[in-house]
Design a binder for these strands. Sequence first.
DNA 1: TCGTTTTACTAAATCGTTTTACTAAGTAAA
DNA 2: TTTACTTAGTAAAACGATTTAGTAAAACGA
Lengths: 354, 354
Amino acid sequence: MPRKSKNPSTEKSEEANGRSISLKELAAHLGLSPTSLSIVLNDAPTASSIPQETKDRIFQAAAKFNYRPNYFARSLRAQRSFTLGVIVPELSDGYSAMVLNGVESVLSTEGFFYLTASHLHREDLLEHHPRMLLERQVEGIIAVDTPIRFKPQLPVVNVSGHDEIEDVTNIILNHNSAAKLGIAHLYECGHRKIAFIKGQDFSSDTEIRWETIRQAAIERGIEIDNDLIVQLEGENPSPEPGYAATKKLLARKKKFTALFAFNDISAIGAIRAFHEVNLRVPEDVSVLGFDDIYAAAFHNPALTTIKQPLFEMGSLAAKTLLQKLAEPTGHSAETLTVEPKLVVRQSTDKVRQE
Amino acid sequence: MPRKSKNPSTEKSEEANGRSISLKELAAHLGLSPTSLSIVLNDAPTASSIPQETKDRIFQAAAKFNYRPNYFARSLRAQRSFTLGVIVPELSDGYSAMVLNGVESVLSTEGFFYLTASHLHREDLLEHHPRMLLERQVEGIIAVDTPIRFKPQLPVVNVSGHDEIEDVTNIILNHNSAAKLGIAHLYECGHRKIAFIKGQDFSSDTEIRWETIRQAAIERGIEIDNDLIVQLEGENPSPEPGYAATKKLLARKKKFTALFAFNDISAIGAIRAFHEVNLRVPEDVSVLGFDDIYAAAFHNPALTTIKQPLFEMGSLAAKTLLQKLAEPTGHSAETLTVEPKLVVRQSTDKVRQE
DNA sequence: TCGTTTTACTAAATCGTTTTACTAAGTAAA
DNA sequence: TTTACTTAGTAAAACGATTTAGTAAAACGA
């Protein structure tokens, strides 16, 4: 029931004149000391000795003047910032954004905020951003698909990172399951000659994803032809690298009936390349994506894909980090695994001709 | 030239033991007062009276112990946070993310960071988030496609907002040009019966975009049939609302040869709906999108669309806000306009049959 | 009635900077 | 020789909260 009022609500309380009121001023107004107010407003242990009547006076005055403790003063004293740093490669590819949604959903209920920094795969920023975030006194860092190039002096949770750095908790997909789900699906559709797009070297998922896929293929007795493997190149977050890789693949003139792409973005690029040479998807080639970003469901054809629970990975990362902050004792789990799901849509189908 | 070292660089400087050193400690170590160090390190006017030799001693010690001024102490004293708040509807639809990229590109060179808050079109969050950001002492707010439900006590720049609130600078697309570009393109392709998808009521662009499109159509002598107008509903950031709207449109059984969608996301949903009833795009229906998000170029068919320079809008918003902070005198421009571009791809074509 | 505990508070220190207002010595000008 | 300025700094206040260590009065217990 959105109200369309053009004039946003004006006066909530008595003030609205200057900026906000300080504890000292409020105390003066009440004829009490700042100490007493602090004790009451924060419900410190000593507050039990303050009579309810006085407490009420304080609460009412605080409400009336809309008193808010100064964030800097409080943080300086308490040495806490209630802020996390989040480092992502890039925001607009759909992947990090989904993770951030999950992060925010948890943080907002806990009174935390986060500062975002994109490293754009640049080595200098990979070193610079963590330093800046540290200077900003963030209490912990969430890295998304990002190599850790700094010595973690704070709790760090890495989403889809595989660097195995001491004290860094990794949240990763069960890549084994993912690979098996993908290969099994293609296998059951009758595909035996399968092409693969590997990720860019800089992506932390590249290595493990490829290794598990290779394993899964071997287990099914699928032979992997080296000529059917191509790799993404460049930092373009669009489907362009997938398109280019598929062009290269087609130029090799080797037969294949299915393509297992590194992710949905590259699958979309691949489909474009197939269409250009009049190969239909899925009639002539099946294409399997990875991630299940929003675009996957509404692409044409809709992508069959291995879904990563990105929102959950984000919220899990946030929860884990907050927990680390709450109890810095004991090393928490080094790795948390989340489960993928096969989402069958229209880009894969039974093999038609061999 | 990414180096693959698994061990992030360890000791930069002498310390690495405890946390960071304070100004007082550093001063004690040098046998000087904190005042002197502060003056020298910040190059305050008085620094001219300090001999170079002493300055060098101070700089060297600061470097050696990797001294960083405490952010809270400095902010408390200076009453500045070097932080902006950014309010967006949602991160993962590609639109806000592109704007944020632009924002970040500017802020990072100026030593600013930003806190993100998503309102998800919820009225409570539209009021709550600005309050929280204010408490966090942000120096200004950038709102993206977001109605202003708060009394702006700080500099505010609204990207794609049309609320015309006092002291809020709006960065908006030249909607007139955009509408003319779109209508002209369809007209020149021979389309006369054009269907339209309007935006959700909550989107700030909905009204103006529709009004300018109507005008542009009238100027071209194109009649708008009310039965060919549908509207997006619901807060789903995926193409689903566009799909649903188009289904509704098709159910009306009125003839049309082109569809002007509210944005790329809904255009993608529309194409899906067309395909389901075996209407080919662009052979049977032309579809025109809006925004030019990443997905547009690689959709199948690739979307013809009206490009909004989202990155530039973000960087312009950031620049404008920083400027407002630097010179709070004088009301700055109330509205800054950016120009759209027609990007012709494959989803539109000459009309084939009437 | 004296000592102890509880009640109802407050003064001052602290967090780590920056800034304002000094001091004390040396140099220059009149 | 006095005045004035420059040089080379420093002490203390301020930013706005929280916390530690009190105090003074009232109530309680023996």
